[in-house]
Simulated scan of single mutants.
Amino acid sequence: MRNTVFRKLMANEFGQVRGEMIARDHVMSGLGGRTADEALEAGFPAKEVWLAVCDAFDVPAQRR
């Protein structure tokens, strides 16, 4: 998964503004205490970051 696909999934699931806020501000234990943006910058695969967001926000399986 590319970062652009990750951003599109975030916007589709949470809305553009809220998706950006979550990626920037929400620290997730599934990402080692990082935000999504920090995890992507640290080299985590975008798919792994997306799945961590899905777990943190209980995104239904059909939208993962």
Rank of each mutant, 00 (worst) to 15 (best):
Met1Tyr: 13
Met1Gln: 06
Arg2Tyr: 06
Arg2Cys: 13
Asn3Cys: 05
Asn3Ser: 04
Asn3Val: 14
Thr4Tyr: 03
Thr4Lys: 01
Thr4Pro: 00
Thr4Glu: 11
Val5Phe: 09
Val5His: 06
Val5Ile: 02
Val5Met: 05
Val5Tyr: 08
Val5Asn: 11
Val5Ala: 12
Phe6Lys: 03
Arg7Met: 12
Arg7Lys: 08
Lys8Gln: 08
Lys8Leu: 07
Met10Gln: 14
Met10Asn: 03
Met10Pro: 14
Met10Glu: 02
Ala11Glu: 08
Ala11Asn: 06
Ala11Tyr: 07
Ala11Lys: 00
Ala11Met: 04
Asn12Lys: 13
Asn12Glu: 09
Asn12Trp: 05
Asn12Arg: 02
Glu13Asp: 15
Glu13Arg: 13
Glu13Trp: 14
Phe14Lys: 01
Phe14Arg: 08
Phe14Asn: 01
Phe14Ala: 05
Gly15Trp: 14
Gly15Asn: 02
Gln16Phe: 13
Gln16Val: 09
Val17Phe: 07
Arg18Gly: 00
Arg18Ala: 11
Gly19Asn: 12
Gly19Ser: 07
Gly19Lys: 03
Glu20Met: 04
Glu20Arg: 10
Met21Tyr: 04
Met21Ile: 06
Ile22Trp: 05
Ile22Met: 08
Ile22Asp: 14
Ala23Trp: 00
Ala23Glu: 10
Ala23Val: 12
Ala23Asp: 07
Arg24Pro: 03
Asp25Leu: 02
Asp25Tyr: 01
Asp25Ser: 13
His26Pro: 06
His26Trp: 14
Val27Leu: 09
Val27Met: 00
Val27Lys: 10
Met28Thr: 04
Met28Ile: 14
Met28Pro: 05
Ser29Pro: 00
Ser29Trp: 09
Ser29Val: 10
Ser29His: 10
Gly30Glu: 10
Gly30Ile: 07
Gly30Lys: 05
Leu31Met: 14
Leu31Trp: 15
Leu31Ala: 01
Leu31Pro: 15
Gly32Met: 04
Gly32Ser: 04
Gly33Pro: 03
Gly33Lys: 05
Arg34Pro: 04
Thr35Tyr: 08
Thr35Lys: 01
Ala36Arg: 11
Ala36Gln: 11
Ala36Thr: 03
Ala36Phe: 13
Asp37Ser: 12
Glu38Ile: 01
Glu38Phe: 12
Ala39Trp: 02
Ala39Val: 08
Ala39Gln: 02
Leu40Glu: 02
Leu40Tyr: 01
Ala42Phe: 00
Ala42Val: 11
Ala42Tyr: 07
Gly43Asp: 14
Gly43Glu: 06
Phe44Ile: 12
Pro45Ile: 07
Pro45Gly: 11
Pro45Trp: 15
Ala46Val: 12
Lys47Val: 15
Lys47Trp: 12
Glu48Ser: 08
Glu48Thr: 14
Val49Met: 00
Val49Ser: 14
Val49Arg: 03
Trp50His: 05
Trp50Lys: 04
Trp50Thr: 01
Leu51Val: 06
Leu51Ala: 01
Leu51Asp: 00
Leu51Asn: 00
Ala52Val: 02
Val53Asp: 12
Val53Lys: 12
Val53Leu: 09
Val53Gly: 01
Cys54Gly: 05
Cys54Tyr: 04
Cys54Ser: 09
Asp55Tyr: 02
Ala56Gly: 10
Phe57Trp: 12
Phe57Asn: 09
Phe57Met: 05
Asp58His: 11
Asp58Trp: 07
Val59Arg: 00
Pro60Gln: 13
Pro60His: 09
Pro60Thr: 15
Ala61Met: 09
Ala61Leu: 02
Gln62Ile: 06
Gln62Arg: 08
Gln62Ser: 13
Arg63Ala: 05
Arg63His: 02
Arg64Phe: 13
Arg64Asn: 01
Arg64Lys: 08
Arg64Thr: 08
